[in-house]
């Protein structure tokens, strides 16, 4: 290997090494990793930002932070086994290394949420990036008013962060509502799509709403938020796209004239509702 070292600190594609402190497997497809920078540095990020996570010889994938920056010793990611890279990462064990570039993109503007009611609506794997914001709000609970969380999963076996869910069900700091598209013999909770949770509680029109989930979910949830009377400038969407490079160059994540990996992945809905390709 020949290094032209005058450029080594200028290469935006050069990742940093992290050590896996802990691995959990919440579902059949997902692994939950707790990571620490190998050089001892603290990963400073905003909830909603992303990382390009990689394994040499396999490739890179964009993944949202699944823990809050208030928890400085380590950070979490959740990886769903879907392709070559994610399957290889999900074979890794505690003590092994995974490589990251980031934080990248634009996360939640916390100043816009502080001092207000916050409603988070997370569908499926959309709970992973929103968990960063959920933890943040729980860690600095006094900075926010009423905090409501809607979580929908396909079925009970697909639920993520089981110990978190157990805590949120009991906690006075969050009004937590959950649903599954399809129950099983043990499930006694709500069955139905995530919008069915809106009738379980009262949401104020002065709420800041955050949506993250599968692409199909957004339009239906926004219709409900419209009914509540929340202005679209107070609705934040955390979008999924093929963020291949993460630095606004490769073109794969483009929505009309925006690059999701640098202009987002978190957008105020008012800023993108005129973009035909957004939702």
């Amino acid at each position: 290997m020949h290094c032209n070292c005058s450029y080594s600190d200028k290469n935006i594609f050069l990742p940093k090494e992290t050590e896996i402190l802990k691995v959990e497997q919440p579902t059949e497809l997902e692994k939950h990793f707790t990571l620490k920078m190998k050089d001892g540095a603290t990963m400073a990020f905003a909830p909603g930002q992303i990382l390009e996570v990689s394994l040499f010889g396999y490739g890179e994938i964009p993944i949202g932070f699944a823990s809050s920056p208030t928890r400085k010793d380590s950070f979490d990611i959740v990886v769903r086994s879907v392709g070559r890279v994610s399957k290889a990462i999900n074979k890794l064990e505690k003590g092994q290394s995974v490589f990251v570039r980031g934080p990248l993109g634009s996360g939640f503007d916390l100043d816009k949420l502080r001092g207000h009611d916050v409603l988070i609506i997370a569908g499926g794997i959309g709970l992973c990036p929103t968990r960063s914001l959920i933890q943040y709000i729980m860690d600095r609970r006094s900075e926010f008013k009423k905090f409501t969380l809607f979580y929908g999963a396909k079925d009970p076996s697909q639920q993520l962060f089981l110990s978190d869910l157990a805590n949120w069900r009991k906690s006075n700091d969050v009004d937590y509502y959950e649903t599954v598209d399809k129950g099983d013999e043990k499930w006694t909770g709500n069955v139905g799509v995530i919008t069915t949770l809106f009738k379980k509680t009262q949401i104020s029109p002065d709420t800041r709403a955050v949506i993250c989930g599968p692409p199909v979910m957004f339009k239906f949830v926004i219709a409900e938020l419209d009914k509540v009377g929340i202005p679209r400038s107070n609705v934040y969407v955390d979008l999924e796209r093929r963020m291949k490079c993460g630095v606004g160059k490769c073109g794969h994540c483009q929505i009309n004239d925006k690059y999701v990996c640098v202009d987002g992945p978190v957008f105020s809905y008012a800023d993108i509702e005129h973009l035909e390709e957004a939702l």
């Binding site: 290997m1 290094c3 032209n4 450029y7 080594s8 290469n11 050069l14 040499f56 010889g57």
Partner: peptide, 16 residues
């Protein structure tokens, strides 16, 4: 090539 790797070592390869 943007990064070259060998076992657990890696480096950029900008060489104009």
């Amino acid at each position: 090539d943007m990064v070259r790797f060998e076992k657990d070592k890696y480096e950029g390869c900008i060489s104009p």
